[in-house]
Design a protein around this nucleic acid. Structure first.
Length: 258
DNA sequence: ATGGCCCGTAGAACGGGA
């Protein structure tokens, strides 16, 4: 089974690329962030035509998350839950479902804007409530995966210029401490289970020819529970999609689970 | 050069992203 996460930066704009990608890479589960679509405009029919069922939670203009499942291999998303019951949040950033016996959590962490912003305070609080919500789920030892746009680069090697990013939002110590707190719950960074190329990133600014110069950050992640860890056989970043015409600024991350 | 680009909502610029 293959599971992917991708911040599409508008599903309306990226739908043709998504369908094209799924046609050549038929992953079984896809977590999407920043769909930027109200539910009435979610492309249910086009995805069905491509063989995928969908659970989604959107709002106008901002945020929006979804979990797609390939009907033929894993059926449809079960026990769908939107949001975190421990946090009242009008922003649609979290959706969970059970797929093929695996609990899949799709998350779009707040960006935070800058470390002196109210949005940064919201970001840290949002993650703290996520930790509170995940802790008992992981204590049970169930197979679980947390995938999405974390908006955190956990280590220096995940940042193209660590000196320039030191103390900045996405790489500040309080954010990185929270990433470590997720790991302390027993979640494992699937990407680092394997040898990876140096300077591996998942996001590149649209400006400054950042992708061409590989000036990026690794902020999109797949975290797996201890129960799932032995079944993970591959994790890779799908850079090809960032190279296309009119790309999202994020590339997908994929894991293979046997 | 303390911005550069892209998206949605506008119906012109602006907020937000990261």
């Amino acid at each position: 089974m293959q599971i992917a996460t991708w911040n599409v930066n508008s599903l309306k704009v990226r739908l043709p690329q998504l369908l094209d990608w799924l046609a050549q890479t038929p992953v079984d589960v896809v977590c999407l962030q920043e769909t930027k679509l109200v539910d009435a405009k979610f492309p249910v029919a086009q995805l069905e035509e491509a063989g995928y069922a969908a659970a989604f939670a959107g709002q106008p203009t901002y945020n929006g998350v979804a979990i797609l499942t390939r009907r033929q291999t894993v059926g449809e998303p079960l026990a769908v839950q939107v949001g975190n019951p421990l946090l009242e949040d009008p922003q649609q950033r979290l959706i969970s479902a059970t797929v093929a016996g695996l609990r899949v959590i799709c998350a779009y962490f707040p960006n935070g804007q800058s470390v002196d912003s109210d949005k940064y305070v919201y970001k840290l609080d949002w993650i703290d409530r996520l930790l509170d919500w995940l802790q008992p789920q992981l204590a049970g030892g169930a197979p679980l995966a947390l995938l999405g746009d974390f908006n955190i680069a956990p280590e220096e090697r995940d940042v193209h210029d660590p000196a320039a990013w030191a103390g900045q939002v996405l790489f500040s110590e309080p954010e990185r401490a929270r990433f470590r707190a997720l790991q302390a719950l027993g979640l494992v960074d699937a990407f680092r289970l394997f040898d990876q190329p140096e300077r591996s990133y998942t996001w590149w600014d649209y400006r400054q020819m950042a992708f061409r110069r590989n000036m990026g950050l690794r902020i999109d992640h797949v975290l797996v529970s201890q129960a799932l860890r032995p079944r993970v056989t591959e994790c890779r970043i799908e850079r090809e999609l960032r190279r296309r015409e009119q790309p999202s600024d994020h590339a997908p991350v994929l894991v293979r689970i046997d």
